[in-house]
Structure formats: structure tokens, C-alpha cells
Amino acid sequence: MNKSTQMMCCTVLAVAAAVAPTFANASPAGDKKFLATAAQADQNEIALSKLAQQKASNPDVKAFAGKMVDEHTQMTETMKPFATSRGLTPPMGPDADHQKELDKLNGLNGADFDKEYMSQMVTDHTKALSAFTSEAKSSNDPKLKAAVIDGKTHVAAHKNMAYDLKKKL
């Protein structure tokens, strides 16, 4: 190898060594942020849906709410080992915005309750689907990525069910 080729190789290796930690740390931080967001979203859905199981007047809305409680509880359990391994403490209830939504829903009855709840479900699942789609593309952890892709399938189905049910109300 001539001297200029050796210098070029050394330069490329030095740049790669300097840049590698940046890329190595980007994905785990993104994974951790996603896991925190997903855990909170699950708690929000569970809280709103438990209320809907009690207050919804439409039997289809009640059935949807039951499905949301069951499936978001399962999603929480699926993601828990990933969150725990990254030092995350799981949320214990809805965030401030969803607490306000709960308060609003508590003041509604009948068709007004059903429409507001389903509207919130469309909004929440649209946001969640975006987060799952982004994480599925960016995660470098193969086990997490598989769980995210599975979760994305459920969230997409939830969004479609919510949208279809909202249109019927």
C-alpha cells in the first residue's frame, strides 16, 4: 500500500470510530422514548376504556371498550420486559391530558359519551400507529422490533375499528 492509501484508510477508520458511538446510542435512546410513550398510551387507553365499559350506551362501544382493556393490558405485559431492561418505571394511570378527557367523559351520558369516547379512540390510535410505525423502522433491537411490529398490527386494527364505529354513531 502506498502512503496516501494508508493515510486515506486511517482517516476513514478514525471517522468511523468517531461516528459509531453516535449511531449506536441513537437507537437505544429512541427505543427507550418509544417504550415510555407506548406504556403511557396503554395506560391512557385502559383508563378511558374502563370508564366506557361502565358508561357507554351503545353495545358495540361497550364491546370495543372491553377489547381495548384486554388488548392494551396484554400489550403492556408484552412491552414490560423491554421497558424494565431499560430502567423505565411504568406509569400507573393516565397522563394529565387523558385525565382531563376522563373528567370530560364523566360529565357525558348516552350518545354524547359514546361519540366523544370513540373520537378520542380514533385520535389516540392514530398517534399510536404513527409511533409504532416509526419505531418499527428505526429500532435495531430485533426482539423489540418483532414486538413492535406485532403491536403495530393490533394498533392499526384498533384504529380501523374505532374509525368504523365512530362513523356509525
Rank of each mutant, 00 (worst) to 15 (best):
T78M: 05
E116D: 14
E77R: 11
F34S: 07
G93Q: 02
V61E: 03
T73D: 08
M75C: 02
K104T: 15
A52I: 09
L51F: 08
A18R: 12
F64D: 04
K152W: 00
L105Y: 07
L88Q: 03
H72Y: 11
L48K: 07
Q43L: 12
Q99G: 00
K32F: 00
A18K: 11
Q74K: 13
F132V: 10
A36M: 09
V148E: 00
A38Y: 06
A47R: 04
N58D: 15
L102T: 08
E101T: 15
D124S: 15
G30C: 05
E101G: 02
Q53A: 10
A56T: 06
Q54A: 09
G30N: 14
Q54C: 00
N25S: 13
N106A: 10
M75L: 14
L35I: 09
D97I: 00
K145T: 11
D31G: 00
G93S: 05
K152R: 14
Q99R: 13
T76D: 04
E116G: 00
A36D: 08
L102H: 06
Q53E: 13
K145D: 02
K55H: 12
F113E: 08
A63I: 06
G107A: 11
D103Y: 01
S139P: 05
A111C: 04
L88R: 01
Q43M: 15
M118Y: 01
N140E: 15
D112C: 01
L51T: 07
N58Y: 10
L108I: 08
V61C: 02
D97E: 13
S139G: 06
R86P: 02
T37D: 13
K127G: 00
D95P: 01
H72I: 09
F113N: 01
Q99P: 00
H98C: 04
K104H: 14
A52Y: 07
R86M: 14
L129R: 12
A20Q: 11
D42R: 02
K80T: 09
A65W: 10
M68H: 05
M79W: 04
G87D: 05
G30E: 15
A52S: 12
T84E: 12
A56S: 14
D141G: 09
